[in-house]
Design a protein around this nucleic acid. Structure first.
Lengths: 348, 348
DNA sequence: TTGAAAGCGCTAACAG
DNA sequence: CTGTTAGCGCTTTCAA
């Protein structure tokens, strides 16, 4: 027990050569190895507690059973965990491990990171961004197989997976429509991110389809934060013909909208229904009443990305796939039917 | 550019043997290599864009420049990111990469994870728990160098780093004391975790030192959640001689305490000062008013753990070190002096 | 159906 | 000061 057994030890114990032992353990070489021999090798390995040395194997096969995970900011967004977790689980399932690098978004850093991974002969790379983004694939990637995670290229040259923002938006809007709302406002951020663009566009279409003017129902906050949501909601809710429901860009802004409603004496959901996006663990379920929100499928995206990557390792010339991951709605208590007379007098 | 150059290519280009090239690049072999030769090799390597093959090197040196990060739940706690980030940065600084495994806390899984890491010849392992815990080091670790992160053993047989819960508690209590409070209540959870034990004990000592009976100022919630904090705070604040300030077990419970205060018509901080623990990004600064809270130094702990691990790789027989990481207070607006007549009449 | 032998790319011992 | 040589532990021809 003092020393790791090597393949040679197993071979000797089973009375075969290392070549035979290798093939027996790896089920390789087709029908070359006899049933009985294979058994003998297997039991010998088990008895010795043999574990193959992945490094030595890698030197020979040029594969490491490791996947590089290059993130632009693993730490600051609380979502990151679920993305990593999804990728991790899918990798583990297939006998792979995740080698992590965080680049802080810096592009020189990204090049270095990819080089560091290639030095270690990772079999493929996940290029992850911590929020939905359109990016260029870094040059350094060369011919290393890769999949974009929560990001995509403009041209679709690489496989990628991003949230189906449009679907998620329609999902939460349907919650409101079903409850009887048509005057649905939107509180969003001025930051020009992909998520804003897609959620805003989808909402615009939706209200326009009801013959309403989106411009009259839109309010922008200076950032996608609670104060941003508060300020925007205050403006929106003070309008004479205020909406009976609000679709928020995300949960953080929704926090601010809740505060604005309280400030104005509007009760949720009786006077105002609210839906949102992101379904953040520490916000949506913790607000009172619970916030109905479209979930960002980070776990699923992580998992999908690894599976797609592994598939591409098998068939390197496969066409790139651009996947939209559904955003399921977490239904809570922030939605009710509109009041018969939806225009509640405001004191302020 | 079509093929990665090998050390042999560099050697040939510089007109030396691979051995010389190796030593020149690694600054090894002492004064063996001439200044001029070294230069020549270096430029040749640079021109070819040579990157050493870490796998081949690892096979020879039995070192991989990788550190295993074994976590019991990377995903579900939002803190995890900062811990990983701290470890990552310290590792990167020294030319190491992090190989991540998540065990979901399962002990069979942990054994498998460690084995998978050892197969890949990681140089050392970080054993991380996602909240402060006392654990047994898994058998599987064998003689692999390791450091415990946010965890410690009962006997101190391994190097470990955990938050200084006592120091952090004294820190936030000092905020209250300085503002003039003596009747400081504590809202905690019934869950028997290390953090509860240490924070509770420290607070008890503190109020006892002022001649107060801790039992009269303590309320427990059924879990360390917002509803748990709400229920506990309601009980505590309805007592005839209610505290003028509350120290909360953590920020999530503090959220509930805020709601309870609102419910009872108590304004924060004028009628009630609040301090807390954890300093969670999405809670403490987002609450209104901002919550004064002792920060869990996850980044610093991650960083420390890697540095300690690297140190141990150098001197394997060094005495294990058990480190307490300070928890700095994030000062916000939830603390003010007590009212002259602190007993505000309550309607309820 | 199996064994012997050659290497994957690098470092370290041993010669010069 | 430098070159030659022998492996690290495994997989995979090639020969039996």
């Amino acid at each position: 027990m003092t020393k790791q057994p090597r393949l040679a030890d197993v071979a000797k114990a089973a009375g075969v050569s290392t070549a035979t032992a290798s093939m027996a353990l790896n089920d390789t070489g087709g029908s070359r190895i006899g049933r009985e021999t294979r058994e003998r090798v297997r039991t010998a390995a088990a008895e010795l507690g043999y574990r193959p040395n992945t490094v030595a194997r890698g030197l020979r096969t040029r594969r490491s059973q490791m996947i590089g995970f290059v993130g632009d900011d693993v730490a600051t967004t609380p979502f990151a965990g679920q993305m990593i977790r999804g990728a991790h689980d899918a990798a583990r399932e297939a006998g792979f491990l995740l080698l992590m690098v965080d680049t802080t978004g810096d592009s020189a850093e990204t090049g270095e990171a990819i080089a560091a991974l290639q030095e270690r002969q990772i079999d493929g790379v996940l290029l992850a961004t911590m929020y939905h983004q359109v990016i260029e694939v870094p040059e350094a990637i060369g011919s290393t197989p890769h999949v974009l995670l929560d990001a995509r290229t403009a041209h679709g040259s690489s496989s990628s997976v991003v949230p189906d923002e449009r679907g998620g938006t329609l999902g939460v809007l349907a919650e409101l429509t079903t409850a009887g709302h048509t005057r649905i406002g939107h509180v969003t951020t001025v930051e020009q991110v992909e998520a804003r663009r897609l959620r805003l566009a989808t909402w615009s279409e939706h209200v326009a389809a009801y013959g309403l003017d989106p411009a009259e129902l839109l309010a922008e906050g200076t950032g996608s934060t609670s104060p941003g949501g508060f300020a925007a909601a205050m403006r929106l809710l003070r309008r004479p013909d205020r909406p009976t429901a609000i679709f928020c860009f995300n949960d953080r802004m929704a926090m601010g909208v809740y505060r604005a409603a309280a400030e104005l004496g509007l009760s949720i959901p009786d006077d105002l229904s609210i839906v949102s996006y992101d379904d953040q663990e520490l916000i949506a379920p913790e607000l009172v009443p619970g916030l109905t929100s479209a979930a960002l499928p980070h776990y699923d995206m992580g998992q999908w990305a690894v599976r797609e990557l592994l598939r591409r390792l098998g068939e390197p010339d496969a066409e790139p796939v651009r996947h939209l991951m559904p955003c399921p709605v977490s239904r809570r208590e922030s939605v009710a039917g509109p009041r018969p007379f939806h225009s509640i007098p405001l004191e302020t």
